[in-house]
Deep mutational scan, measured.
Amino acid sequence: MQRVNMIMAESPGLITICLLGYLLSAECTVFLDHENANKILNRPKRYNSGKLEEFVQGNLERECMEEKCSFEEAREVFENTERTTEFWKQYVDGDQCESNPCLNGGSCKDDINSYECWCPFGFEGKNCELDVTCNIKNGRCEQFCKNSADNKVVCSCTEGYRLAENQKSCEPAVPFPCGRVSVSQTSKLTRAETVFPDVDYVNSTEAETILDNITQSTQSFNDFTRVVGGEDAKPGQFPWQVVLNGKVDAFCGGSIVNEKWIVTAAHCVETGVKITVVAGEHNIEETEHTEQKRNVIRIIPHHNYNAAINKYNHDIALLELDEPLVLNSYVTPICIADKEYTNIFLKFGSGYVSGWGRVFHKGRSALVLQYLRVPLVDRATCLRSTKFTIYNNMFCAGFHEGGRDSCQGDSGGPHVTEVEGTSFLTGIISWGEECAMKGKYGIYTKVSRYVNWIKEKTKLT
């Protein structure tokens, strides 16, 4: 034993070699072989497995989906700052455009905790909710729209109204504003409101030439003092309507412009014939205590009207009353817009006519005020429907199939267009061939041609 100890002390290297040989010859039971080890760690190889990531292109799944990435790591994937920024906006807080917040056709661009709407022409605001041009839906104005110097929408209202708090709607500024039905039992019968379409306001006024200088022999019209197929109006439903009495009662109609003036057809009036105007009328054979009678003290036909040349060209006249009318729910003026808007309103496509005229061709006159909704007829169809001249200051309205029309005794009465609950004068009943005849239409004086003249002559002093 002493000898062994001496050998170990003198030859430590020998001992180490012996131990190493023993270990190498022993069977290893701690580690699995290569094949079995792979069965336990069965993990798919990654895209760049075996390579240094710093030297390969980034992978979106590896960089940002398996674990949260930084902007720089995302930049490695896209290799483009702009594309990385677009991805980053949604990656950080989701897609803010998912709810489609942009209105009126706006395009949404996502941002971090926010979004941006790219608005089409005519709109602005956070969600493109603000109209900035009158060309689109009248700028959301209830009545009139004008573009300011910086191309912003400025709404306005006709006389007797003021802008509401929203700067879009119009509200009454006087007790009985024009064009409004205020009798409670008839307010439910107000005709369907007309909503502004998209309009090209630059070209809204037709490029028409008034044929002022045409000389033409007097034409022989049949029954051209021209509501057939209409309905009984309720008291106060058309408070701007008046009836004219002269040699015979209810020979023509008219509309209240203001307390002192009536507008009617020029062919209705004769110099030297006494005319009485009755406002607030409903049943011409009954006294309903809503009527107001006034005498006409002055007749002003349009300066281009000449019955000797043509009885229905420039067929418009103004009547001055001896005493002002007292405005109330049964006696209310009709609204008159400017030339541009009167023309736009007419193009809405349908209007209402009213009167006490004959209820059928050569038949009896109506006792109760009649009204009828009539569609506008395109000019080409209008011209083809008659052998008589249709001037540019006239328009056609009615039904091709016949059966409904204005008729004798309705002449001078109103053709009105309702705009968001307020009625505007767009025409004056003038003439036609018979009444409600198939293929024939009622012919009306186009008020847009005469609004400046009306307003100039009827100013209240």
Rank of each mutant, 00 (worst) to 15 (best):
T225N: 12
Y201P: 07
I40Q: 15
K293V: 11
N203V: 04
D410R: 13
G229V: 05
E288A: 07
N258C: 00
C178N: 00
T190P: 09
T194K: 11
G272T: 09
G254V: 00
V153N: 09
T287F: 06
G351L: 02
A164D: 08
F360S: 06
A279H: 00
I336R: 00
N328H: 02
T225M: 11
V273F: 06
W453K: 00
Y341K: 14
K51M: 05
P324N: 04
H302I: 01
T158S: 06
T209W: 08
N258T: 04
V174G: 05
Q2T: 05
V153L: 06
E456V: 08
G236E: 03
E79W: 15
Q90D: 12
E420W: 14
L318D: 00
S11N: 08
D322S: 09
I256S: 00
Y371R: 11
F399P: 14
I17T: 02
I17C: 04
T84K: 15
E35A: 10
D150H: 07
I443W: 14
L369W: 10
A397T: 06
T389P: 09
A37Y: 15
R62I: 13
I334A: 04
Y115V: 13
F221V: 05
R358D: 12
H415N: 00
G442A: 15
L327T: 06
E320N: 02
F144S: 00
L321F: 00
D315C: 01
N36M: 07
L189W: 08
R404C: 14
V199P: 09
D131R: 06
E53Y: 03
S406N: 14
Y115A: 09
F55M: 14
D322T: 02
Y312H: 10
T194W: 12
P235H: 08
V326A: 11
D110R: 15
E86D: 08
R358A: 14
I262D: 00
K146H: 04
R140S: 07
R180I: 04
A26K: 00
G21R: 03
P12Y: 14
S350K: 06
L20Y: 02
V447M: 12
Y341C: 04
M65Y: 12
Y305I: 02
F251V: 04
S385K: 13
I344W: 06
V277T: 02
A307C: 05
P235R: 09
P12I: 13
E98D: 06
E231D: 09
E420V: 12
G230V: 12
V30E: 08
L327F: 15
R75M: 07
P414I: 14
P324R: 05
L24W: 06
C145T: 03
I7W: 11
A436C: 06
P172D: 04
G106V: 03
D111P: 05
V278F: 05
V269L: 08
I214R: 05
G398W: 03
S107P: 08
L367M: 07
G355D: 03
I297T: 07
S365D: 06
T158W: 02
D249F: 05
Y305G: 02
A307E: 06
D93F: 09
D111S: 11
A366K: 12
W453I: 01
L19R: 02
Y91R: 15
E259W: 02
Y305A: 02
L321W: 00
G94W: 05
L383F: 13
V368D: 09
E116Y: 05
V296S: 02
G349K: 09
E72G: 15
S354F: 13
F55P: 15
L327E: 03
G122W: 04
A337V: 04
N343Y: 03
I7Y: 05
L321S: 01
T389Q: 10
F399C: 13
I336Y: 01
L318S: 00
T133M: 13
Q241H: 10
K455N: 12
N328G: 14
V195R: 05
G50H: 12
E286P: 10
E340K: 03
P324I: 02
N80V: 14
A308T: 13
Y201S: 08
K168L: 08
L211T: 11
A380E: 08
F424V: 01
E129A: 12
C119L: 01
H289E: 05
G94P: 05
N222L: 09
Y22T: 05
G50I: 07
V331T: 12
S354L: 14
I428G: 01
E401Q: 13
T458Y: 01
E159F: 06
Y201T: 05
Q370E: 10
D95E: 15
E270P: 10
H314P: 02
W431C: 15
D200Y: 11
G230D: 02
R226P: 07
G254M: 01
T29I: 10
G122E: 11
T290N: 12
L103G: 11
K362T: 09
N100T: 09
I334N: 00
E129M: 08
Q237C: 04
D110M: 15
Q96M: 15
Y312K: 07
K457G: 07
L32P: 15
G179S: 01
Y330N: 06
G357R: 07
G412L: 12
T85M: 07
H400R: 13
G439N: 08
N80E: 11
K152C: 05
A207P: 07
K440G: 13
E286G: 10
D198G: 09
A266L: 02
E27D: 05
F348E: 14
T290E: 04
E281K: 12
T461P: 11
S329E: 10
F224T: 07
E73V: 14
L20Q: 01
F71M: 15
F121G: 08
I284A: 08
G439L: 03
L41P: 15
Q370K: 11
T422M: 04
F123K: 06
Q241S: 03
D110I: 03
A9Q: 12
F388L: 10
T290R: 12
F424A: 01
G280A: 03
E285Y: 04
F348I: 10
Y312Q: 08
E208Y: 13
F360L: 15
H302L: 01
F238R: 05
Y201E: 12
V195Q: 08
G179T: 00
E433N: 13
R298H: 08
Y330D: 05
C134W: 02
T342L: 05
D338N: 07
N36T: 06
R46Y: 11
E231T: 07
P120W: 03
W88I: 12
P324S: 07
T225S: 06
E129D: 12
A265K: 01
K311V: 09
I262H: 00
V451C: 12
N343Q: 12
A317S: 03
V227W: 12
W261H: 01
G253Y: 05
N213F: 07
T342P: 00
K89F: 05
L20V: 06
G439M: 04
Q237N: 06
L19G: 01
R298F: 02
P375Q: 04
Q219F: 07
C170S: 01
V227F: 11
E27S: 13
L19D: 00
N138A: 14
E79L: 03
A279Y: 00
A397C: 03
R294L: 00
K455F: 05
V92M: 11
V243W: 06
N222E: 03
V174E: 09
F238Q: 04
V4A: 12
A26G: 05
G50D: 14
Y341S: 14
A173F: 08
L20F: 09
V4K: 12
V374P: 09
A366N: 09
L425Y: 00
N42Y: 06
G432V: 11
C178Q: 01
V331I: 10
V331S: 02
R294E: 00
G349P: 06
W118E: 11
G58E: 03
F196I: 07
N5S: 05
H267T: 05
D405S: 12
I299H: 06
S448W: 02
R294T: 00
K387Y: 09
G413H: 15
G355W: 14
G280I: 02
N104S: 14
L327K: 03
E270H: 09
G402A: 14
K387Q: 15
S99V: 15
V199Q: 13
E270Q: 09
N310H: 12
I334L: 08
F395K: 01
T215Y: 07
N80W: 04
T209Q: 08
